[in-house]
Design a protein around this nucleic acid. Structure first.
Lengths: 209, 209, 209, 209
DNA sequence: CATGAATGAGTTTTCATTCAT
DNA sequence: CATGAATGAAAACTCATTCAT
């Protein structure tokens, strides 16, 4: 992305400010105080506050785009690819918890139509991506087929989002990566085709004896 | 709850205002304009803006408390009780979409510690309630036991929250109750013990013949 | 007009401020300082700065409307009615010189379309009024007919406006009413039919003897 | 005048900016944007904003000085010389309407005493010039003598200024040169000695037959 | 001759809240 | 129970100008 150093700095402290106290905390004054310049100086780097928020979204868009590219272009099973995606995302959030607070707070961006549209676009992009991989997973007999694809995506994303929400409401009071791994394990049991059939296959064999 | 008529009115328009444009839209001026009184008049009914937000939370707490009591005290299966709970909630949201927008926007209430603590408390209450019912469901061999209880709750609540989120981001552009029902059907398939075992039980019997 | 006392006060100091240093001098801060209240207090009385400017125009519109009514509804000759109109206007300006500075400064009101439209409307109203009286004056053989009516109005108004302009550029350094009277005398000589014909009529008679 | 190319450019866009939206539109930012340089670059060419306004006045002073020299040094009748002056001025304005908007807006220059003094000086210069020619015209029995010279100048300049004012308020919606010519014709009828005496002389002769 | 970065002072306007009535 | 008038604090943003490069 073509952000200057100062712009990156502003994006960074803005995320931190929002994470600290919501958008109400994101004021030009607070930003300028945080990077120790005068208020008008901010306007050298962004035309308006909305543009800063737009930049935050672009930054997140790029970040998740990069991660998604890395995760989904691997030659591994579908579920492993999704797992990898969320793992990397949680790595990112663990290192930069503010991000987690901002990213799923859609209402921060509801002030302006340009913002809300971008939020929806990003969200749809993620859904599409996951949906795609889920589809593949079904074709390869990896993922169960008895419920609609879109519900599978909703289970995955919903649980993941709720985990993040709890993490930030608990003031980052638990190990996100650890809990995420456990959650994913359960998710795999729930969604994989093999898992369940294996269990019952065994029992059948017992019977057959 | 002991809210006066005017207080209820204020709570109501406040929810609508927040739903329309986030907390930034919730100003004393906007509230007073909406119920057509002067700004100082608001202070006859609430000591401060925070108290209005606190009242919104109380209102939601009471509402969900009522619903949860009705749903969970029925003599039906665990899953049916959970289903009933979400069904009633979606009925409520369909009738009052503003509610849906406000209720899962935890960051609205993060300004003040009294607010955020109450949000966390309410959320924990819901979790506890669902967790309890899930536990029961397992004891009755209704719900699968191969993954931790808390993950089951997270799947249920996560998917439900995400459905609501999508509903409001789509500007209430689909039939929440319809989609909710379908999602729940998939959920039942995923979580119920009987469902899957029945399938395989049948096949076993085939073998046994 | 339905302006409150405070509103009238604000209109008044605003005219004075503009007269002192152009619109650049008309700031909410300066207004509030002048009437010794806080800046936000101004907004109790006018929604915006534009509304203050609009009110100034309304005030002037009403003022000139009143004067024009008084002057033009008299049972005197056309030229006398125009004379009376300008006399009263100059009385007003002498008492309230700030008015003179603001009123002919059309560019003050060019920021906003609502303002500039009102300026044009007021100006056109005056033109129409004078034009009407000029027409009457011609029908009564009071005013010369050898040049278009609209040019007569332009001579009258142009000269009057220029007198005012000079008066304020001279920092109100001469007696406006005195100079205005003299200017009007010349104007009468220039425009009246009788004046010139009388002169020449006399000479003709001399010849005829 | 010794303005550099860049300075002339700045003067030019400044006039255009003022014409577009009053002085409020004349900001260093707008100037620099219009000529596509950085804001500090402006300060290479003018020490301050006041100096730009001063330069605009100088430019106008020089322009009208040139025109006046050309017009008034001709060996034609006084009225023809004045006519020529206004004709050339209107040519100029027609080609550069922004000029017309700025030039008669004395209040633009009232911020600073250096500015307002220069405005007054320029205006007085024009008056003096016209007055001089009017005087000559009277000595040559071209211009009527029954009203004071200074009033003649005021009629001429007042009507001309008002024409310009109307032209810009109408958004340059009519042909200035055409209307100016007609106005001047009426002016000649009004002011020339011969014109009127000729008319009546004829009638006298009729009588005498 | 030009610019990127910065700033102190100021702009209009909004905010939650108070107080006398 | 209500309001008109007010306010300190702060919001986003603009202004003319400076300075190191």
């Amino acid at each position: 992305m073509d952000f200057t150093k100062r712009q990156k700095e502003i994006i960074d402290v803005s995320i931190r400010l929002i994470s600290k106290g919501g958008i109400q905390e994101l004021t030009i004054k607070n930003i300028s105080k945080a990077i120790d310049v005068s208020e008008p100086a901010i306007y050298r780097h962004f035309d308006s506050k909305i543009d800063i928020l737009l930049a935050i979204l672009s930054y997140f868009e790029e970040l998740t785009g990069d991660i998604s590219e890395k995760s989904f272009n691997q030659e591994i099973s579908s579920l492993s690819r999704i797992e990898d995606f969320f793992e990397r995302l949680m790595d990112e959030f663990t290192e930069n918890p503010s991000m987690a607070k901002v990213i799923f707070s859609e209402e921060i961006f509801q002030n302006d139509s340009r913002l809300s549209e971008k939020v929806v676009a990003i969200m749809k992009g993620h859904h599409r991506k996951i949906l795609e991989v889920v589809k593949e997973g079904r074709e390869n007999n990896e993922i169960r087929k008895d419920i609609p694809e879109k519900h599978i995506t909703m289970f995955i994303m919903g649980a993941f989002r709720l985990l993040i929400t709890r993490w930030r409401l608990s003031d980052f009071g638990f190990d996100l990566k650890e809990e995420g791994k456990e959650l994913w394990n359960s998710m795999k049991i729930l969604l994989s085709l093999s898992q369940s059939s294996v269990n019952y296959q065994k029992r059948i064999e017992d019977y057959l004896l």
